[in-house]
Design a protein around this nucleic acid. Structure first.
Lengths: 232, 232
DNA sequence: CCGGATCCGGTTAGATACTG
DNA sequence: CAGTATCTAACCGGATCCGG
């Protein structure tokens, strides 16, 4: 009998033994979202110690959820990918996230503002389809933050790849979003509409008129933003 | 900022902070299944210490998932019931359980045999509808277990209420199920069919012919038994 | 009996630093 | 880049005890 076991044959308990240890669900979200490298995963779970991340990845591998493979082109570098069983956790993540969006208080959520996580999330959800077919640079300015976390650049390449920089890449900027971190997070979460933030003077959009007009097309919100919120 | 927080505004992380602490998912399963009293809950999570159960119930109450109310008829006795937010966790439990049924190895599951939990689960899933409209007593005999855990009686009252006894209640028995704990658990989990267990001589059913014939009607299996299993 | 609270020893997680 | 090592703090399990 395993050490940390609940000793219950019920599939909820058997699954919870694997899935409901500290950080595991958040780590799985990162994996489901497509992160594969150790340090890429670290960026998605910055408060998780590397030692624990390493242990959890081993546990998930032992559970048949994750596969660890050396990257042939880069010696000493490894890739963590979900197995079929791991990809099948998607409905679990969705169910947990939907419940959180619906029932966790907005105020509690907004106590955890983090520009790094927010920009990282925005980056991987940008839709390049409605963008110009040339390189496009969007600068986000959080006027309430200290210098080192204030300015962010999203660079959308013609091939649709999106890069994120926190230091000025030196390219011409096509669109500026000037706001504060809380407002941008509220928009991302679906708590506040882009139009309302603009009307309230909390979001200032300047630059290319086409990009500004299409902002609700290319700036995709959190996958859970559409879920109805039932508590304040 | 809360102590054990992941510090992530993502709804998966916010929900996981509440739901993915040790024992919580299993406790929620008990609540979803309808247990309301402290000691009734203990019976569903026997390996959880009462101190931790008490703490978790407080946490769930603070999270708006559980309501604790004194039972008016019985002073000093309390009832724990799910709020609307708590009942809305049903899809989460189902998603976790389905994943567990599909992907946790059968052998791992069957390392956690427990006649008490099994009978407790069977009790609350008996369907009285296809049963005779008189009191019906079913005795389950686990021939591989020690005396104290070998014999169990399920008593189905005419009104559909089902009682479970581990000491002989003295009633006339209408049907006997003689088997071993692993076989009965395999049947309950949907790993083995009743017919196959009978053919293999691992389950012996004697007594009322009508009850025997209808066994697959009134003996409802685990809610996850229908989920396809994809690993050995 | 019911509904916990208390104490103590072992395990787990966090912080930080360090290595190939 | 991809992790280990080490130390400390928090948490958990098990037993016991207590008031109504």
């Amino acid at each position: 009998m395993a050490e940390g076991s609940y000793n219950q044959f019920c599939p909820v308990a058997m699954a919870a033994e694997i899935l409901c240890t500290r950080w595991t669900m958040v780590l799985l979200r990162e994996l489901v979202c497509g992160s594969t490298r150790f340090n890429e995963l670290r960026r998605g779970v910055p408060r998780m110690s590397p030692a624990l991340l390493s242990k959890r990845l081993k546990d998930l591998e032992a559970a048949g959820i994750v596969e660890r493979r050396p990257v042939t082109a880069e010696p000493g570098v490894f890739e963590y990918t979900l197995t079929t069983a791991g990809r099948d956790l998607h409905p679990v993540i969705i169910a947990v996230g939907n419940w959180g969006q619906k029932w966790v208080e907005t105020d509690a959520t907004l106590e955890n503002l983090d520009p790094n996580l927010l920009m990282w999330d925005m980056r991987r959800n940008i839709d390049p389809e409605p963008m110009p077919k040339a390189q496009t640079v969007i600068q986000v300015i959080y006027s309430d933050l200290a210098e080192s976390r204030r300015n962010w650049w999203l660079i959308i390449e013609p091939d649709g790849n999106v890069d994120l920089c926190s230091v000025d890449p030196g390219f011409e900027v096509n669109l500026y979003l000037s706001t504060d971190l809380r407002t941008m997070t509220e928009i991302w979460m679906g708590f506040t509409a882009v139009d309302k933030a603009k009307r309230d003077g909390k979001l200032l959009v300047t630059g290319d008129r086409g990009l500004e007009r299409d902002i609700e097309k290319w700036l995709r919100l959190s996958p859970f933003a559409k879920t109805e919120k039932l508590v304040a």
